[in-house]
């Protein structure tokens, strides 16, 4: 039986990801094009926000991805810590800069929306603050990967950091529910919240969310492939260095004898 663990084999991952990559990239381009044109040009103005509502089409998908990418990294980190699959650790490493970018986009578009609507680009609301903390965790995670030479040690430590951050990510996701006295509105999209968002905004928003998700998947596959190749090159370099050392050692030994 085929299982998901087959992807843990780097060679098999490379083959499957090469086949999946064009589909993800093509789907992302299509969904983003449809969502952008539909959302920005073909939707009516909101009854209170006017055309500022269009920021929603970038803000909601990027915020959603910021949280979900972190969740994906947490799952990949657990798999690395428990099962020691290198592809898993490298996928988490590859996802981090994408997640950091999504968080930055969510913070920036939130400020653009907040200035005209709330009257302030930034407030120390629990949800906004926890998103800033999430961004700092992404930055810290990337820095920790860069700071440690040995790849396995780096994967161990960054995985632990990621799991620590997961607690904050969960708090951030549910901050609005725990502390409902914030400035940020509740989640516009959840399984039962379709009535909050009119169909005119709902469908282009779904297209944008699908586009962001596929875009992330395409970038993730691409970046993980790069990381796997980088790891392979490193292994080859080290093998060559070891072989050279051994040969030099042998030559010196021969010289000593002579």
């Amino acid at each position: 039986m085929r299982s998901i663990w087959e992807l843990a084999n780097p060679a098999r991952f490379m083959r499957l990801s090469a086949a999946a990559l064009p589909w993800c990239a093509g789907g992302a381009a299509l969904a983003l094009l449809v969502g952008t044109v539909w959302g920005f040009f073909l939707t009516p103005d909101d009854y209170r926000q006017g055309s500022t509502v269009k920021i929603l089409f970038v803000h909601v998908p990027s915020a959603l991805m910021a949280i979900n990418i972190y969740a994906m990294m947490a799952v990949a980190s657990v798999i690395w810590l428990v099962r020691r699959h290198h592809v898993s650790a490298l996928a988490a490493k590859a996802a981090a800069p994408i997640g950091a970018a999504m968080t930055a986009i969510a913070l920036a578009t939130g400020a653009m929306w907040g200035q005209p609507m709330w009257g302030a680009p930034w407030v120390w609301d629990p949800r906004l603050t926890s998103f800033l903390i999430l961004f700092l965790f992404y930055v810290g995670y990337i820095a920790l990967w860069a700071a440690i030479e040995d790849p396995d040690a780096a994967a161990d430590l960054t995985s632990v950091l990621c799991l620590v951050g997961t607690v904050f990510a969960v708090v951030s996701r549910y901050a609005v529910l725990f502390w409902n006295q914030g400035l940020h509105q509740g989640a516009s999209l959840s399984l039962d919240a379709k009535e909050n968002v009119d169909d005119a905004f709902y469908w282009p928003l779904l297209a944008m969310i699908a586009g962001f998700a596929l875009f992330f998947l395409a970038l993730l596959l691409l970046r993980t492939r790069t990381e796997i190749r980088r790891r392979r090159i490193r292994a080859l370099r080290m093998a060559r260095a070891r072989a050279e050392e051994a040969r030099e050692g042998a030559l010196e030994g021969a010289a000593d004898v002579a």
Binding site: T43, P44, R48, V53, V123, N196, V197, D198
Partner: peptide
């Protein structure tokens, strides 16, 4: 500051 709810409609 104005507080907005999660309702969006044309």
């Amino acid at each position: 500051l104005a507080k907005h709810d999660e309702t969006y409609m044309p």
